[in-house]
């Protein structure tokens, strides 16, 4: 098993988790041969915030999440924790996580992860541009009491 640097793996796992299940399925239609180590399981994650944004942690509320783990025939183990309740999404994300540890990584990077990142970036940019359009430009009126 080739150990991927955690930072890169962290990045692709997050990208797979945030991807729309439909889009991910379109990009990765066929899963590699694998053994399911952990059947997709739907559960909850308690989301925490901080008092005053920077202070003590507190429990804000839960979100749904699905996790799964798979092992490829070649031995690599893939994990996924994805928002929502889509078991197929979790299984597919885990399979891609495993494949990213094989020599297929660069192929998947260009065929799956880069498109996902580009689409997410484009969606973010559109929203940010709309927000920027609502930014207030203040101007000072001449009030006249100095006349």
């Amino acid at each position: 098993m080739t150990d991927a640097p955690p930072l890169a793996r962290k990045t692709w796992m997050a990208a797979l988790a945030k991807a729309s299940p439909v889009r991910l399925a379109a990009l990765v239609p066929d899963l590699p041969v694998h053994t399911v180590l952990r059947q997709p399981e739907i559960g909850a994650v308690m989301v925490r915030g901080r008092v005053g944004a920077t202070g003590a942690a507190f429990n804000l509320g839960e979100m749904t999440v699905t996790r799964a783990s798979v092992r490829l025939v070649s031995g690599e183990v893939g994990h996924a924790w994805v928002q929502g309740r889509d078991k197929g999404h979790a299984l597919r994300a885990a399979a891609v996580d495993a494949l990213m540890q094989t020599d297929r990584a660069s192929d998947l990077m260009s065929r799956v992860l880069q498109p996902l990142e580009a689409e997410a970036g484009a969606a973010r940019a559109i929203r940010a541009a709309k927000a920027a359009g609502t930014k207030v430009d203040f101007f000072t009126m001449v009030r006249g009491e100095d006349e």
Partner: peptide
């Protein structure tokens, strides 16, 4: 429904300073 879900974890405290702002 919430009560039927296993609690899998607690998140790291979210960083609202890094929020992608709509408003």
């Amino acid at each position: 429904y919430r009560t039927t879900l296993p609690r899998l974890a607690a998140s790291r405290p979210v960083d609202t300073g890094a929020m992608v702002i709509d408003r």
